[in-house]
Design a protein around this nucleic acid. Structure first.
Lengths: 227, 227
DNA sequence: CGCACAATTGACTAACGTCAAGCCGCGTGG
DNA sequence: CCACGCGGCTTGACGTTAGTCAATTGTGCG
C-alpha cells in the first residue's frame, strides 16, 4: 500500500489568526519583528517570558540541557509556528535560531489582557497549548519505545508534513539537531538515513533525490533528503 | 550534601478547587462518582472524551500502545489528580486503574459551558493543561537523554514528592508499569533499584525499608521500597 | 582554491534488552 | 492451617542495539 503523504496545505495551524487576531482586536496587540543570526539564542531556559514569537522565516530549536551537556530538543519551530508561549512567567526551554531567522514578537502581557476579556482568544491559547501537549505526548512514545530506524522515519514524516514549501524538502537542521530531537547520536541518525536510502529508493525526479521511505506500519512517505 | 525531600504538603495542585469550583459555580457542574477494579479500563485511546476524572482513592496509568504491543505510560495519576482532560473530543491515552480506584466524574460539556462565561475557570483549564505539558516536557528529557539509573532515581523522587501520605512510600504500580513509564524493561528497573539499594542505604525505620537514594546532581531522597 | 565544518562509514564498546531460572509473598482451596 | 500455585520480582548469562572513537569523504564559504 503506497500512500503519498506530502500534503499541499501551505499553512500550519499555529498562525496568528489562530490566536483570534481579527482586524478589530489586532490594535490591542503590540507587534514587532526581529532577526536572529544562525546559531544565536532567542531566549534561555528560566528567563522571564515577556514575549511570544512567531517564525516568519527560518527555523528554531527549543531544547533543555543537563548539567553535563546532554541536550534534548523538544521541538523544531518552522515558518508560521508560534513558540515561547508559557503560562507561568518563565521559559521552560532555550530557543535558538537554526538558520538566519525572522520572527514576529508579541508582548505576552498584551496577549493576556486580551485573553482576559475575549473568550475566543483564551480558547485559542488553550488550543495551542493542547497542540503542544499532544506533540509532546507523541514524542514521549517515540523516545521511550521506538527503534532508531522508526524514530528517523517518523522524523522524516513529520518534516514532510510540515516543510511542504516546494517539491524539495531541505532540512534546515543538522544531524546533531535531529539526533538530539530523537534521543540518538548523530552517527546513529546518519546510519539510519543511509539504511533508509538503500531500502526504499523509488526513483528520482529532476535532480532532486526524491525517495520512498518505508515505515514500520506499512505507512510510507515520499520525500527528499538533503538536496 | 544530604537533603530530605519528603514534603509535608498533603494536596497536589490538581484539586477540584483548581478548576475554579467555588460554592457558587459548583451547582452548574454535574458531579458523580465511580469505582474501577484493579486492572480495568477507565477509557480507551480515541474514545470520545465525555468526562473528566479526579482520583479520589487509588492510582491510574495513562498509556499509548504501538501496534506490536510496546507501551509507553505517559503519566500516573494519584489521589487528588485530575486526568482525562482533553481539548479535542477524543482521549489521547488509554487510562486503567492500577489498583482498586475511586474517581469523581465531571461532565466535560458542563465544564466547557462554565469556562465559556467564567474566565477564572478557563484560566484554570489552561493552567492544568500547562502543568501536563510541563510534565511531558521534562519526561521527554528523561526518555531521550537519561541513563537507566537516572531515570529510576528521578522516578523515585517524583513519587516521593507526590506520595507523601505517611512515612511509608508504597508504590502502587508494578515494575512493568515503572519500566513502561521510564522507557526501560522491568529487569533494568529491578537492577537499577538493586544498585540504588546497595549504594545508598542509610537505615531502617520500624519494619519499613526506609532508604537514602542518591541522584546524579547531589540530590537525595528518603523513601521506601515495597513494604 | 583551500579551509573548516558536517556527514558518512568502520571498528569496537557499553548499556540495555532478552531469555531463563529461582525466589518470595500471597491468596486459595483442600 | 498448611500446601500449592500464581504472579511479581530478582538475578544471572548472553545477545543486540545504539554509543564511542576515529578515519575519510563531502560541502559550503571566504
Amino acid at each position: 500500500m503506497f500512500v503519498r503523504i506530502n500534503t499541499d496545505s501551505a499553512l500550519r495551524p499555529n498562525s496568528l489568526r489562530d490566536l483570534g487576531m481579527t482586524s478589530g482586536s489586532n490594535a490591542l496587540i503590540s507587534l514587532s519583528e526581529f532577526s536572529y543570526k544562525k546559531g544565536t539564542e532567542i531566549y534561555g531556559e528560566k528567563e522571564p517570558a515577556d514575549y511570544v514569537y512567531q517564525v516568519k522565516l527560518g527555523a528554531v530549536r527549543s531544547y533543555k540541557l543537563l548539567s553535563d551537556g546532554r541536550r534534548q530538543i523538544g521541538a523544531f519551530h518552522l515558518a508560521g509556528d508560534i513558540f515561547g508561549l508559557e503560562n507561568g512567567g518563565e521559559h521552560r526551554f532555550t530557543a535558538e535560531a537554526i538558520v538566519d531567522t525572522h520572527v514576529r514578537l508579541i508582548k505576552r502581557q498584551s496577549l493576556e489582557i486580551v485573553a482576559e476579556s475575549d473568550a475566543m482568544v483564551a480558547k485559542h491559547l488553550l488550543s495551542m497549548t493542547t497542540n503542544n501537549l499532544q506533540h509532546a505526548e507523541d514524542h514521549m512514545l517515540l523516545l521511550g519505545r521506538k527503534t532508531s530506524l522508526e524514530r528517523v522515519a517518523a522524523f522524516l514524516l513529520e518534516m514532510d508534513k510540515r516543510l511542504t514549501a516546494a517539491d524539495v524538502m531541505a532540512l534546515p537542521m543538522s544531524r546533531r539537531d535531529i539526533a538530539d530531537y530523537l534521543g540518538l547520536t548523530l552517527e546513529t541518525v546518519s546510519r539510519a538515513l543511509s539504511r533508509l536510502h538503500e531500502l526504499g529508493i523509488l526513483g528520482f525526479i529532476g535532480n532532486t533525490q526524491r525517495q520512498i521511505v518505508l515505515l514500520d506500519r506499512d505507512q510510507l512517505a515520499i520525500l527528499d533528503l538533503q538536496p
